[in-house]
Structure formats: C-alpha cells, structure tokens
C-alpha cells in the first residue's frame, strides 16, 4: 500500500529525513518510535503533503503511484488520513459542516452523489459511539475550546467518518489520560480491517499496550535504524533510546 524509498526531506535547508525506507501492506499496523526531533512528525506531514517540506531525494509510492506531486486534499481523497499531533482550532465552523464537506468531497472524487442529510447525520451518530463522544457536533466549532483529550477523540472520530485506507496517527497518545487513551485506542482498533493500514507514531510504549503493532521501527537521525516486532517496543521502554544511540554510534 505504502512504499517509501530512500526519502530525503529538508525544512528551511535543514535535512530532517535521510535515506528513509518503509514498506506498509494492507492489514498491517506499524509503530514508529523515536526520541524527540528525529523526524517523526516530518514523516507524517510529508506523507500528507504539507507545504514547506522539500523532498530532495527518493519517492513515496501509495497504491502503486508516486504521490509527491499530489495536493494534500488529493491524497486525503485517495484515503490518506493524518491524525494531527496538535489539531488546529477553526472557529465558527461546526464539526458537522466540516465533516459533511469532507465526506462529500471524497464521495465526489469517487463519483458518488452527496450523502443525503438524514443518512449523514445517522452515520455521524454511529461513529460518535466509537470514541464515546458526547459533544453536540452541530453546535461546536472544530476543535475550538476542546480539551486535549477531546481533540484527540475528535481526530479518531473523523478517521471513523472518513474511513481512510492509510491512517497515520501522529502522537495520538500525547496529552491523554488513561481513560481517554483506552477510548482512543479502542477506536483505532475497531476501525482496523484487512484492507487498511495504520502507522502509529509515538514516543512511549504505553499506547502499544492497547494497539498491538505488527512492526515496530525505531527512527533515529532521520532514518529507521532498527525494526522488530512488538517486543522491540518493550525493550526500548526498558533500555531507553540511549541504548539505540549507542548501538548506532558504535
């Protein structure tokens, strides 16, 4: 589904990712871990197509095609979803309206008619249950005045509504208390199926207690330096990132 080859990315002339490779297949869950400032968020943003990142080398192949030239919305319509680390507030724009616009844009892309309002509303209602969201969506603006936990729940809720094929969750666990973490993780797990893939970017191992990855990659110095199964995460937790650093530097 996703294949990144020899990717080299810079921001403001500073190289962040270098020689980065990853292979993600449908049905898989990948966890990318690493200390601060190693390029985790850069990776997420580059896949989603955010401006300001310069791809110097390599390619991102999604569903068999390079997406480097695609606009962010085109990638989104093709099924790439980014769960933001810091979801932005958009005052005055209700979540309902926001999601309806997004859903219908994606449907239009697929050659479908807009979803009838009634159907759309009941769909929202269903999806809200996944993340135990009880906010009145119509009356609240996107992320405005949300607590950290609510913002993250809202991200997963949107993921549920948009049903992406490739979800990249950037530090979705940060700022969550234990209950919210459980709810968010449950949401992610219940959206998982054999046709979609998930990349979980995280700092800590604790999210991986709830979301069991098929692969764990350690990102350091802009590239993946170690790949293993879920036990790698535990080892990291135990030994800390210094362990990896030492291994690399030797």
């Amino acid at each position: 589904m996703l294949s990144i080859k020899n990717l080299e990315v810079s921001i403001d002339n500073k190289v962040i990712l270098k020689n980065f490779n990853i292979e993600v297949k449908a049905g898989e869950v990948h966890a990318i871990m690493g200390p601060n400032g190693t390029g985790k968020s850069t990776l997420a943003n580059v896949i989603a197509g955010r401006e300001g990142y310069e791809v110097l080398n390599g390619d991102i192949i999604y569903k068999g095609k390079s997406i480097l030239e695609s606009k962010p919305e085109e990638r989104a319509r093709e099924g790439i979803f980014l769960g933001f680390q810091y979801p932005v507030e958009i005052p005055g724009v209700s979540i309902t309206n926001f999601m309806k616009t997004a859903v219908n844009e994606i449907r239009k892309h697929k050659g479908l008619d807009p979803m009838p309002a009634g159907e759309f509303l009941s769909m929202l209602k269903e999806k809200k249950k996944i993340v135990e969201m009880n906010t009145t969506l119509a009356s609240r603006s996107v992320n405005q005045g949300f607590s950290g936990g609510e913002k993250k729940k809202n991200e997963i809720f949107q993921m549920a509504v948009l049903e992406p094929q490739l979800a990249i969750l950037d530090e979705t666990d940060s700022g969550l208390d234990i209950d919210a973490l459980r709810i968010v993780a449950h949401g992610i797990n219940s959206l998982k199926n054999k046709d979609n893939a998930t990349i979980v970017i995280t700092h800590y191992q604790r999210l991986l207690d709830y979301i069991v990855p098929d692969f764990v990659h350690v990102l350091y110095g802009g590239r993946i330096v170690k790949t293993g199964g879920k036990e790698l995460a535990l080892e990291l937790e135990e030994k800390g990132y210094d362990w990896i650093k030492q291994e690399i530097d030797i």
Binding site: P72, E73, G92, N97, M99, T101, L162
Partner: peptide, 23 residues
C-alpha cells in the same frame, strides 16, 4: 492544511473558514 487533509480543496476550505470567522 487541516481542511485539505480531510479532502476539502483550498477553495472550499477558504469559504468554510471565512464563514466560520464571520459566524
């Protein structure tokens, strides 16, 4: 970018944001 990432093109995103702003 947030709107774009959800599949909404820039044109509509601006309309959405401006409308929210004037709400």
């Amino acid at each position: 970018f947030y709107c774009n990432q959800r599949g909404i093109d820039t044109e509509q995103s601006i309309a959405l944001i401006v409308n929210g702003y004037a709400k």
